[in-house]
Write a protein that binds this DNA or RNA. Structure first.
Lengths: 143, 143
DNA sequence: CTATGTGCAAAATTTTTGCATAAAA
DNA sequence: TTTTATGCAAAAATTTTGCACATAG
């Protein structure tokens, strides 16, 4: 868990950026909060304890997280950018219920293997990927 | 090719919606244009020949296309919603070059099979899916 | 006729930016 | 002390909406 914080510190110092109170607060809140938070949701949570942190700082800081590889941006199609923390966990993909908006995570190494194969066929070097299956979750299929 | 137009007509009449000049124009332009057009790009093209068609109509019509299943919405992470025509073709996925922004299409039925299996395991009913591999295309790996 | 669609401009959303001030190195 | 970060508010950018008028059925 300290790994994420270390990676962030390291990234900041490599780039000559500064470690600030706000960045620490936002990182802690980001890690404490569950996955798939929208920027607004995160901002509101932070706001509760730290009413003086601005929206722009949250935007800028999340972008930093994403650049340094500790968070991933997602667009699940509701017009809100969501971020998910990414280090330490295995990469996972998503089942997204179009009715109740529930997000279920899964992973399947066999799919990853096939992706690598596709990439190789196109001389493509994968940095990242996104697999999302949209549909109805078990509950929402019941009438 | 007439299939798409037919499906659209059928959808309109099923829903009691009307077939209008604008909808026809937008559909033709959408089909004529390559894949992955952003709403703005499409609007500008339409604008050239039909300067009186409004932005809102293009938005509303593309949403219709997507509802009736002849187009698919994509967000490739540049803040622009893109649409792609979908009928008649096999479903395909995307390799997206993060440097030159090129989009390469591919399909792999074996991946689809595994997706179905994952869905079954979660009692999930897939309506749609999206697989995007981000990274560097062959050209952009050369220094 | 009647219901739906259109165009426009205004509003709502989401994200980015400029700039004076504050804080880190 | 010099550079980078922050907060605010303003600006951009994207998408949606309200409404009077137009058009399809």
């Amino acid at each position: 868990m300290g790994k994420i914080r270390d990676k962030f510190r390291r990234y900041l110092s490599e780039k000559g950026l500064k470690s600030t109170q706000q960045r620490d607060i936002i990182l802690e809140e980001f890690l404490a909060a569950g996955s798939h938070l929208s920027i607004e949701e995160l901002y509101l949570r932070i706001r509760e304890k730290h009413p003086n942190i601005g929206y722009a700082t949250v935007y800028r800081t999340l972008k930093l997280f994403s650049e340094c590889g500790i968070a991933e941006e997602h667009q699940f199609g509701d017009g809100q950018t969501r971020y998910e923390s990414v280090i330490g966990e295995e990469h996972h993909d998503h089942l997204i219920c179009t009715r109740c908006k529930r997000i279920i995570e899964f992973e399947d190494p066999r799919i990853e293997t096939l992706q690598d194969e596709v990439a190789r066929r196109h001389n493509f070097k994968i940095e990242n990927h996104r697999l999302e299956l949209y549909g109805l979750c078990a509950d929402c299929q019941k009438p």
